[in-house]
Simulated assay, not measured.
Amino acid sequence: MDYQFKAGSIPLLVSMPHVGTDIPDEVLAAMTPAAVDKQDTDWHLVRLYEFLDEMGASTLSARWSRYAIDLNRPPENTNLYPGQDTTGLCPVDTFHREPLYLEGRAPDQAEVQRRLQAYWKPYHDQLRAELDRLLALHGRVVLWDAHSIASHVPRFFEGKLPDLNFGTADDKSCALGLSNAIVSRALMQDRYSIAVNGRFKGGHITRFYGRPDANVHAIQLEMCQSTYMNEEAPYGYRADLAAQVQPPLRAMMQAAVDWIRA
């Protein structure tokens, strides 16, 4: 299976496109040792969001590493942040500019198209199918695209990122009322810093599927990994830190569900 999926009963689908750690053998054969470390994975998000089962949310999480193909990039491989540095559909280097492929082994266009069909398309087919199912059941649905990143990545931003980075494609991917409900709930705590449509405005999933006029409201949350794990290899989960961030995280998601049901 190219992903893990569980259908829920409430109008909330949580997508985790960057949690995958598997790399197909035929892809790995062309890669450098930097690829094996998979340092740019959104580590442990399935565990962090373990409360979703109790909430009754639908969940979709990736099997394949973003180093094989990035499920949160458009199939045309257009830059989501024009004028800014970013990694592509089939990344050729890590966030720290380490090459991912042996010399002369980077994927050509034919290989990119093969990976789109083999690894990218199944995830998006399931995402679309579940959104349609939830729409038929509830009439409106929230798509929450869950991500995490190291708190310091000089390639993309200066200094430390805010702890919680919400993206709504500059208010295009969801109703302002929904994002306000989520952010207002986030602001009820003072442990974690917050940004809205800052360095992270939402990737392909948020921008493509978020259609408020069609009753699909999408929001991305990019969390600093320092809020719940060790950021250095071997990237261990910190249950003590996670226990602090999970209650406000769950409250934000409940605020989204309450808004969509109102």
Rank of each mutant, 00 (worst) to 15 (best):
M1Y: 08
M1I: 08
Y3E: 03
F5M: 11
K6W: 00
A7C: 05
S9G: 01
L12I: 15
L13G: 12
S15G: 05
M16N: 03
H18S: 09
V19H: 01
V19R: 02
T21Y: 15
E26P: 02
V27N: 06
A30L: 06
A30V: 00
A30F: 01
A30M: 02
T32P: 04
T32G: 10
P33S: 15
A35P: 03
A35R: 09
A35H: 11
D37W: 15
R47M: 08
L48N: 01
D53N: 04
G56V: 10
S58N: 09
L60N: 13
S61H: 06
W64Y: 12
R66Q: 13
Y67V: 03
I69A: 06
I69T: 10
I69M: 06
L71F: 01
N72F: 02
R73S: 00
P74E: 02
P75G: 02
N77E: 13
G83H: 10
D85H: 00
T86M: 05
T87P: 02
T87I: 00
G88P: 10
L89E: 12
D93V: 00
T94Y: 12
R97L: 06
L100V: 00
L100K: 08
Y101E: 08
R105G: 11
R105V: 06
A106K: 07
Q109L: 05
E111K: 00
L116T: 06
L116H: 05
Q117S: 14
Q117Y: 08
A118M: 10
P122H: 05
H124L: 00
D125Q: 15
Q126P: 11
R128Y: 08
R128C: 11
A129T: 06
E130L: 00
R140W: 12
V141W: 03
H147D: 10
S148F: 01
I149K: 02
I149Q: 08
G159V: 12
G159T: 04
P162F: 09
P162D: 15
D163N: 14
L164C: 03
N165P: 10
G167P: 07
A169L: 14
D170K: 11
C174L: 02
A175E: 14
A175N: 03
N180C: 14
A181W: 09
A181S: 07
I182N: 06
R185F: 05
L187A: 10
M188A: 08
Q189W: 01
Y192C: 06
N197K: 03
F208Y: 15
F208N: 04
Y209G: 00
A214E: 15
H217T: 14
A218D: 07
E222D: 13
M223L: 13
C224L: 05
T227G: 10
T227E: 08
Y228H: 02
M229V: 05
N230F: 06
E232N: 14
Y235E: 07
Y235P: 00
G236R: 13
A239Y: 11
L241R: 09
A243G: 14
Q246H: 02
Q246I: 13
P248E: 14
R250K: 15
M252F: 08
A255E: 04
I260D: 01
A262H: 09
A262I: 07
